[in-house]
Design a protein around this nucleic acid. Structure first.
Length: 596
DNA sequence: GTAGGGTTAG
């Protein structure tokens, strides 16, 4: 980028006065002196001078001043300085200003395009990123290795699968297919778009798989709800000689907590200690979350209280973990501690505390939470209001839930579904159906949770015919029934005592019935003391999940309810041989330094 | 100037 510093018609002194605002006049004068004394390095000096000036500018007025000086000294067409100028304008959130400078600049080099693309990416204006990328193509400017990562990030975050695929093709066409950085960018894009097959292809074709590539695949499986596979891939990574860093470990901890396997988590914890990541603050969030979610309260607490950095996220990890693992009163106690210490809770803290209240089921506590929310800046937050509706429903007050619902200004499908579910679990089936009609009139499109709420409502109100119809109407709304919908229908038929129909329904399922479906049948058999069908359900259930305490207990209870003590004894023996323990209460946790 | 993670309503 060559350029001549046209200083012959201007005295350098004239620069001095208008730029006083920058407070660093001495530096400024030094630069001017060197510029005038050595003409051959003028261009470099001018560039570095304006670069440092831009770095030090903090306000829009500074940018305008610099712009004026660029014109005064004929530097307004220096592409290097203009690129720096545009970048800095984006950093100072002067987005329109940056764009205007870009639009008015005649010769747009790839660096200048990259600066604008990076600027929009910085402010999460991903539509603009793609718009500029397209404009760049129309202008026949070839993207470089620094253009693609921002564009791929935009495609992944929007997400914009088709656009990203086109970008993938262009990466290949421009000969960047062996760029390890870009391959990871592509992998990230496909993972974010839930395109696991494409992600896998990119991954398999990579000649060099670094820890980032592996982490992307692991987190992809976690995101797809397959934590077991995620942990398998994590082991493969280690076997292939790539050591996990702390970010890779975070994904593995998340996988452990999703499978509910604190033992595996504890082994990995030992590994992390040996690798020296123990004090990494963000890793601690994953660890506290793991132990808290697995009900290992002692381990979670000690990691929490010994943390050097205690930020809101760490508080959230222990509060939400406890709220989900039966330590709801501990979760609320921690929430109170936070308030007592004047630590500002965020939306996640409040959501988790509302969930904890719902678990406890105390209407008094529920009212306190609502008043806390009303006094906070989250009173109109739709996510928080949904949590409040659910909380009141679980505390048994449909009226209070309805009141929160009515006062919610913008009702999305989640809010409607929460209210339908609130009616549902409390046996207000007709109200749930009426609300569903209201929802459709309001032009809100139902989703899979809406239908789950409706079937639950029918099930809990004995509206078997209506529930059956609702289930079969799902396809009219293009909502594919999932395991939980089938399980809910089985539950409904089971409650009504129609075990034969429930069984035939399972047999006719187009997908393989999962544990939730057989579990619903087994519970129905327990209630109606149907031993033969119950044994069948239990057999299928235990073939899917041999180590679940609950399944064994229900089967044992079924035998007991009809006086088949031999059956009870057989189940107990099975539990002993499988190491399944009925009262597996919490115990003190030793951190084991084993390998995974 | 480029890619990966953790808390998160129904």
């Amino acid at each position: 980028m060559s350029f001549t510093f046209n200083s012959h018609h201007r005295s350098f002194k004239s620069l001095h006065l208008p730029l006083k605002i920058f407070i660093f006049n001495s530096t400024f004068s030094r630069h001017l002196t060197s510029c005038s004394s050595n003409r051959s390095s003028n261009s470099i000096d001018a560039e570095s001078f304006f670069t440092s000036l831009l770095q030090k500018s903090t306000r829009k007025v500074h940018l305008s001043q610099i712009q004026n000086q660029l014109i005064v000294y004929g530097l307004q067409s220096n592409g290097f300085i203009i690129t720096k100028f545009v970048s800095r304008s984006f950093e100072l959130k002067e987005i329109d200003h940056a764009r205007q400078v870009f639009d008015e600049f005649p010769v747009r080099h790839v660096f200048l395009w990259n600066a604008v693309i990076r600027g929009y990416s910085m402010h999460k204006m991903f539509d603009k990123v793609l718009e500029m990328y397209s404009a760049m193509q129309i202008a026949f400017v070839n993207p470089d290795a620094y253009t693609f990562p921002y564009v791929l990030k935009a495609c992944g975050d929007l997400p914009e699968l088709g656009f990203g695929r086109a970008v993938h093709a262009q990466i290949l066409r421009h000969g960047f297919d062996n760029d390890a950085f870009l391959r990871n960018g592509l992998l990230s894009f496909y993972v974010k778009c839930d395109e696991s097959a494409s992600a896998r292809v990119v991954f398999d074709q990579m000649k060099v798989k670094d820890v980032v590539s592996w982490t992307l695949i692991v987190s992809g499986y976690v995101q797809n709800g397959d934590p077991t596979e995620a942990l398998r891939v994590f082991r493969n990574m280690r076997e292939s000689g790539v050591n996990p860093d702390w970010i890779a470990s975070v994904s593995a901890f998340k996988a452990c907590s999703d499978v509910g396997d604190s033992n595996q988590g504890r082994c990995l914890h030992g590994l992390v200690i040996r690798m020296g990541y123990e004090l990494e603050p963000d890793l601690r969030v994953a660890l506290v979350s793991l132990y808290a979610k697995c009900g290992e309260a002692t381990a979670a607490r000690s990691l929490f209280y010994e943390a050097k950095v205690v930020d809101v996220m760490l508080w959230n990890s222990i509060i939400s973990g406890f709220a989900k693992s039966g330590y709801a009163s501990e979760a609320l106690e921690l929430f109170n501690q936070m308030i007592a210490r004047s630590i500002q809770p965020d939306a996640v803290t409040i959501q988790s505390s509302i969930l904890a209240t719902a678990q406890i089921g105390s209407l008094e506590q529920a009212k306190w939470m609502e008043s806390y929310v009303s006094a906070s800046s989250y009173r109109h937050d739709v996510v928080i209001r949904t949590a409040l509706i659910d909380m009141y429903a679980k505390c048994g007050s449909v009226e209070m839930a309805r009141r929160v619902f009515s006062r919610t200004r913008t009702k999305d499908v989640v809010v409607w579904s929460a209210m339908i579910m609130s009616y549902g679990i409390n046996g207000w089936g007709r109200d749930a159906m009426n609300l569903f009609n209201e929802m459709k009139m309001a032009g809100v499109c139902p989703n899979e949770v809406t239908f789950l709420g409706l079937i639950t409502a029918c099930s809990h109100s004995g509206l078997v015919e209506e529930g059956w119809e609702v289930f079969h109407s799902m396809r009219d709304y293009r909502v594919e029934p999932l395991q939980k919908h089938y399980a809910s229908v089985v539950d409904m038929l089971g409650r009504a005592g129609d075990l034969g129909k429930a069984y035939r329904f399972i047999e006719a399922m187009p997908i393989d019935p999962g544990a939730s479906v057989w579990g619903a049948l087994l519970r129905a058999c327990e209630v109606h003391r149907s031993v033969g069908l119950g044994e069948h359900a239990a057999e299928r259930l235990l073939s899917l999940d041999a180590f679940d305490v609950g399944h064994h207990v229900v089967l044992s209870n079924l035998y007991a309810s009809v006086g088949l003590w031999g059956g009870v004894e057989r189940v107990r023996g099975l539990m002993r041989s499988r190491g399944v323990c009925k009262d597996s209460g919490s115990s003190a946790v030793e951190i084991e330094l084993g390998t995974m």
